[in-house]
Design a protein around this nucleic acid. Structure first.
Lengths: 324, 324
DNA sequence: CAGAGAGGTACCACGATATTG
DNA sequence: ACAATATCGTGGTACCTCTCT
């Protein structure tokens, strides 16, 4: 910066003003400084800046289950939005989620002095661990189906499950069977809640959900079991992979989708449009989850209470797997 | 740090020595300092440290296709290994790969003054873009099927494709059909090369590969086409999703796997063990790719030429989808 | 004597180096 | 010779001062 100042014939302070888009610089001087910056290919040193401002311009991310579709898409949303706001993205990945791993992850990020943290671990264990750990660091977590709160970004998965269930009932099916995700995941609970609420409202029989584990295989097994239930007309699966498995089991057993049974999935993974039949499913914009998490965190960093962020709304994507 | 020094009754320099595990401190003094550190919950300021040492202790990652299984697992490997070495992980995700997006991504990381960069974008466009861009920053890229080089971490995907093809031929099948990945991906080329080489060596007919796009659906379409080819006995698919699609097409058309046709996949995604039938496939340790990339980069940062890193070797995972 | 543009100086929290006990 | 200290440099920003319409 000193070199730039010398070349432009000004003080380093003026160069700083130019770099920070601060006012109080003559257009003429500003141009001279900018030319010097270009000429010397100057980039300011973020460490020095961080030291002087006590802001690292880094956001930390604690992530779990990155190999899943939703979280990985959300991660890119976070990275993009943070970048756009001038923040870098510092990631810690978790193998398991419990109090000690969470404490360790947060500790790493605190040591790296990030300005704020986003927790991308939509499981109950994460919630519990965060509840027990006290941090003064601004923190936003992803909470599928959660209640409004300043530190949460919510996908309204209860509404998503309702959309699917209502669509199936509206189509005239007597009830809807549910293949759920594994216990412990926030999304599993939310989807069960939404589905059960609609059945209760309309006085339809609610068969106990058949638990899967998000995999296609578990969906297949659930499908085999469902096929034996007399009068199965409509199935709502907790994610698209399980819906795929259900459909495969039905196909193997000679049940036609959607002629005999309607199936609706959840997530709208890119492949779901290409399943056979194309899967009717519930879409959430997971990248938007990431972007909003960053926005919310930045507002928190600004100091004034932003209030709860609005939830991400579901969209029912109509394809061929369900007669609605 | 000054507070710690004051509390321990020493100079800040001595505290620095203790923090850095440097010698030249009496055990007694060291203990006093460590007690003071504990008491004040002191953590050193990474920005100040970065400024003084001109090392940010950050590695940058340029990633593409994070929603894919391989890259996302590799990312966690990178994050873990970097963390273990005291480095934080700074991620930039790419939507498209071309010269300008790559330049921009590297520019961001340079601005953030990372100490080194790992490029996780196994497509030819990335290779080309990096070739044209000159950076003095230490950089390691993931290069499936690539030749040995100091700045590359290689998975020996040619060997992986050979394993699959040889196993099928050894089982007595007259030849092997290949469902390839989309053009432009380094893995696509490597897998085709390995497959073709084995067929050539053994004088077997090589039908042109049927190109897919990594999705289950494209595998399904390829399976429909393959089923019409007379005498199809063995199929090697470029990844597990496509293998799943192929098997589904065969099932729909009444071809039994493995009785009528053997199928081998590639990647060994966690679900593949649960496909029906369980998928014989080629495993690579993608997390290890990430760990080695970090190790190699750290050696580069050390200054002395580490030589090419050894390639990641494939393993054939025998399950039920192929009679071998 | 305002007020705007520019410069001067202290300070951020460390590590490196030379120096002292 | 060894432990511990004092001083300086790192590259910026914040705040105060100066100068000139």
């Amino acid at each position: 910066m000193i070199d730039v100042a010398r070349l432009a014939g000004v003080s380093h302070q003026t160069v700083s003003r130019v770099m920070n888009q601060a006012g109080g610089v003559t257009p003429e001087v500003r141009e001279r400084v900018e030319e010097a910056i270009r000429q010397l290919r100057y980039r300011r040193n973020p460490a020095a800046r961080a030291l002087a401002t006590s802001r690292s311009m880094n956001v930390g991310i604690v992530s779990f289950g990155l190999a899943q579709y939703g979280p990985s898409v959300t991660l890119t949303g976070i990275a993009d939005e943070a970048r756009a706001a001038g923040y870098a993205t510092n990631i810690v990945s978790l193998m398991d989620v419990d109090r000690s791993t969470m404490r360790e992850a947060l500790g790493h990020l605190v040591t790296d002095s990030v300005d704020g943290i986003i927790v991308l671990a939509p499981v109950e264990a994460a919630l519990a661990a965060l509840g027990e750990l006290e941090t003064d660091m601004p923190l936003v977590m992803f909470h599928p189906g959660g209640a409004p709160a300043t530190d949460r970004i919510r996908t309204d998965e209860i509404a998503g499950a309702r959309l699917a269930t209502e669509a199936l009932l509206d189509a005239g099916h007597p009830t809807v069977h549910h293949v759920s995700g594994p216990p412990g995941w926030l999304g599993t609970t939310a989807r069960i809640d939404g589905w059960a609420a609609v059945l209760a409202e309309r006085g339809r029989p609610a068969h106990p959900p058949i638990p899967g584990d998000w995999t296609t295989e578990s969906g297949y097994l659930a499908g085999l079991r469902l096929a034996e239930v007399p009068g199965v007309r409509a199935v709502f699966a907790g994610n698209d992979q399980m819906a795929l498995g259900v459909m495969k089991a039905f196909a193997d057993l000679g049940l036609r989708v959607p002629e005999d049974v309607s199936v609706i999935g959840f997530d709208d993974v890119p492949e779901s449009a290409f399943f056979r039949p194309g899967l009717t499913t519930v879409n959430f914009d997971f990248a938007e989850v990431g972007r909003r998490a960053v926005d919310q965190l930045l507002r928190l960093l600004d100091g004034h209470d932003p209030g709860p962020a609005p939830p991400i709304r579901p969209k029912l994507i109509l394809r061929e797997s369900a007669r609605v």
